[in-house]
Design a protein around this nucleic acid. Structure first.
Lengths: 350, 350
DNA sequence: TATATTTGCTTAATCGATTAAGCAAATATA
DNA sequence: TATATTTGCTTAATCGATTAAGCAAATATA
């Protein structure tokens, strides 16, 4: 009984008017009398009517759904971006569908198929680590559906992009470490094929050269940037005959693994080896010692991604093009790289 | 040109057959000749045809979408449950739509509206901290849409539920702490109105009584269980004239806050005060000292929730009823509560 | 008073895919 | 050879909501 779904037709039958009139009354059409509007709304409420989204979306050719693809949901950066996207889009009548690729190329392809299948009006995505082939993204473009990339993007796709200045961020870190008196700085970076990690590597190399420090091949290592791989790569650096005195890791997760290895080997941080991560994940402020890192402005990135989408759907004549929005990131100096203030202020008894 | 969406009709026109035949050919209907099937599939591929999900879902009265509501996405427990749900459902032809309530009652209501609006075939949810009124969940039930709750559930709703044995988990913790020689054990618990937290509190009280330890009102504190509130409540315990010698916190996040306060006050863990959390969030193994906690079997919970849904849709005559599936949780003893082995094995040089 | 405009609806088509019903040709069976 | 069955499609209706087109009554304007 209450199980049966209520349709516009049910309301129309009760009021003895056409479904067209009911539909218009629900949408406040000016050509429907106030009397009818009120009657319709009253009955709709009584029957607990909820419009069938599938039917209206099919007819209107617009689903008011936006797909979001992130590599992982358990990173604070991505969940913060999502929250911010959702805020902006909800306020504009859109709902979001979240999918995650789990850093897998195959999963990313199936995510895109799912989202296209669900007839989303747009897709906001950050690419998986594994992704190099871009044909699945081209598919989105070819369907004329707005596509916006953030953080993990790709120049070749020629779509809107929002991210931070990775190249400059590397300079911030290297210059900070040099100011701490460090002279042999290693970099555990991401895969070069991913643009952001490539930029961080280029920034690292250029900053090292600019400051006339040695650019040593054994100091630059590519990594998948998981905790485990961070451990492995740190161990690899410790095995060098000429160890680094500072390590810049391109992800907080890998930096955490590196931190564990340093502690297990009783290496003083930051005096023997200083450590800097990337991303400002909440745990960086929780571990001992607290970890210096880069703040990526996740909320701002999400906000801009959503606004870019809204801009694209509202002006369909606007051609999709590579409109890069690059935010300046900020270095957060904590205990793992701070030689100037050696004591933890919270523990200071003075 | 390539922008226009391809429909069954386009394929039908090219092959000079009816759309009905095309539709059947795509679905492998036995009454369509192999010749036609192959021709249809060939053209569909050439045109890059993708079925319009809105149209088929509308016609079939089934969207093959399942809504998931979680309080937060940045907790490892929830993202692990989601991953597990997704695995099982994808294998059975369903896609999931993830929404998060951000622990807000209002947001949870709007999540449900969104999901019903999207015509999901079922909803798998874990309730927000704030939620006490259940009418929005009743709305799901009244529409005859399968509803499954996990972790944060509610007896009154009389729907399927998957969770762990919170009551017994408290016993595990208290008995472990007593075995460590602790005699004055405090509990920073969640809100009693949330069933799981109420069960943990009941378990705590009963285990204390069973072991003839003092049940002191000042040792039992309700909390929102955030990091910040964990800090506040730990400080409150430290301010007592008669401090506890162990603290059981109903969430890893709040336990982390408590840990910070203990360290800032130079209190030896676990000898002065032992600490146990709840949830086995990854960071519990990363902090110093590592945090004892309860493993909630997130993957198993997700798997069972998904299977319960599949069971419910496949047998529509099956009445929704409170079929509780309670898993036994496991205590993970780490440095924060382990007095027997005082040294960190990784640092041991013997 | 005669015409023009506005108001408040209805009718019918539509968005794409699916499916019950049915028909003609091909094949099988008696 | 006559009838029954199977094969391979087509026709037409349907899922609900929306919207262009249009019509009659009410109201405004000349």
């Amino acid at each position: 009984m209450s199980n049966k779904k209520i349709t516009l037709k049910d309301i129309a039958t009760i009021l003895n008017i056409s479904t067209a009139a009911v539909s218009k009354a629900m949408h406040g059409d000016s050509r429907i009398s106030d009397k009818t509007k009120q009657a319709v709304k009253k009955v709709a409420k009584e029957l607990n009517y909820q419009p069938n989204h599938l039917a209206s979306a099919l007819r209107k050719g617009k689903s008011n759904l936006v797909g979001v693809i992130v590599p992982r949901t358990n990173s604070n950066f991505f969940s913060s971006v999502i929250q911010s996207i959702e805020e902006v889009l909800n306020a504009n009548g859109y709902q979001i569908i979240i999918t995650h690729s789990n850093e897998s190329y195959k999963k990313e392809c199936s995510n895109i198929d799912t989202l296209l299948f669900t007839q989303v009006d747009g897709i906001i995505a950050s690419m998986a680590n594994e992704t190099t082939d871009l044909s699945h993204y081209e598919k989105i473009k070819s369907k004329g559906i707005p596509l916006i990339l953030f953080d993990r993007g790709e120049n070749d796709l020629n779509v809107d992009y929002i991210g931070i200045n990775d190249y400059d961020s590397s300079h911030l870190i290297i210059e900070h470490l040099i100011a701490q008196g460090k002279k042999r700085i290693a970099h555990i970076g991401g895969y070069r094929r991913t643009r952001i990690f490539n930029n961080r590597i280029r920034g690292y190399i250029d900053a090292i050269k600019k400051n006339n420090l040695p650019t040593d091949d054994e100091l630059l290592i590519e990594s998948s940037l998981t905790i485990e791989d961070g451990r492995d790569k740190m161990q690899q650096l410790l095995n060098l005959s000429n160890r680094p005195d500072a390590v810049y890791v391109a992800s907080d997760y890998a930096a955490l693994g590196a931190l564990q290895v340093l502690q297990e080997n009783n290496i003083a941080i930051p005096s023997d080896i200083a450590l800097v991560g990337f991303g400002n994940e909440p745990f960086t402020a929780m571990v001992t010692p607290t970890l210096s890192t880069i703040n990526q402005h996740s909320a701002e990135i999400g906000k801009r991604a959503a606004e870019t989408f809204l801009n694209l759907v509202d002006t369909p004549d606007l051609k999709q093009s590579l409109n890069k929005q690059i935010l300046e990131a900020a270095l957060i100096v904590r205990d793992s790289s701070n030689l100037v203030v050696q004591f933890d202020s919270a523990q200071c008894k003075c």
